[in-house]
Amino acid sequence: QERLRIGWTSADSDTDPYAIAAHYFAEELENEAPGEFDISFFPNNELGNETEMLEGMQLGTLEAAVITGTQIASISSAFQLIDLPFLFKDNEQAREVLDGEVGQMMLDTLEPKGIVGLGFVEAGFRSTINNVRPVHTPEDMEGIRLRVQPFDIYLDSFERFGADPIPMEWSEVFTAVQQGTIDGLEIPLSVIYANNFPDVTQYLSLTQHVYNAPALLVSKQTFDQLSDELKQAVRDAAETTVERQRETVGANNQDMVGRIEEAGMEVNEVEDISAFQELVRPVYEDYREDIGSELMDKALEATGQN
């Protein structure tokens, strides 16, 4: 039996997109290669945070993990691509692009780093919640103290939108919003609900600025030890996992907006994202070299932004 430890950072719950991916992957592996793998789960940062788990896979202390694309950028800058705000129009487009040549090019950059990228699952679009005003246009973001993911690309982008971006550690965020230390944050829909943000935040603006795509990863040390059949089994299991995970997460998120509204938040759509896109264009160019010019061109073409 091949030992396969799967790690992720969030809770081991039925509704968590990462947990769903990990469990489906285990099920599918068992389907494809019954009894071949001894699978164990490590949720809740048990073996480290996302960067640390990436290092773990490189060092061979962890076999597999579900890691947010944003964090994978810490070892391969190509992954910054999906954090370019307003790159994807909707789920369908994002899935298509990530399953195609663009996604493959990104996953391939991991192999020389000692990690095999099997595919992208889904955590959904990130939107903006705050206590100052609903955001329809970039002007509405003016001066809002907004916690963003602590990455340069987020800081730069929200600076452009006119917000006051703050790279606060996640564990401090809820209380900071509650006490008014910050005005709001950008966050996936499912996380708003799961973390009770409706209790402390007034406005949800569906900016849908970034599509969060966690990747299903396996340590190359582990993968290379497998027989050809088992390698294929792993790839097939991953493919089915991606399909099933997106379906489940999509269904879970279906009535998410409704539930958030019911929980007391004032929700608004953002009709026109062109003003945001306009403002963020220089950021695209700033990161072009880091991401890889060819990859970026292909992505822009695939998303119809050329």
């Binding site: 001066g143 103290r145 602590p150 800081l155 006051d164 971006p165 703050i166 606060m168």
Partner: peptide, 14 residues
């Protein structure tokens, strides 16, 4: 910078 100037700095946390 965050509380008084309302213009947060990116570097203090790292």
């Amino acid at each position: 910078f965050r509380y008084v100037l309302h213009s947060s700095l990116p570097w203090p946390s790292e």
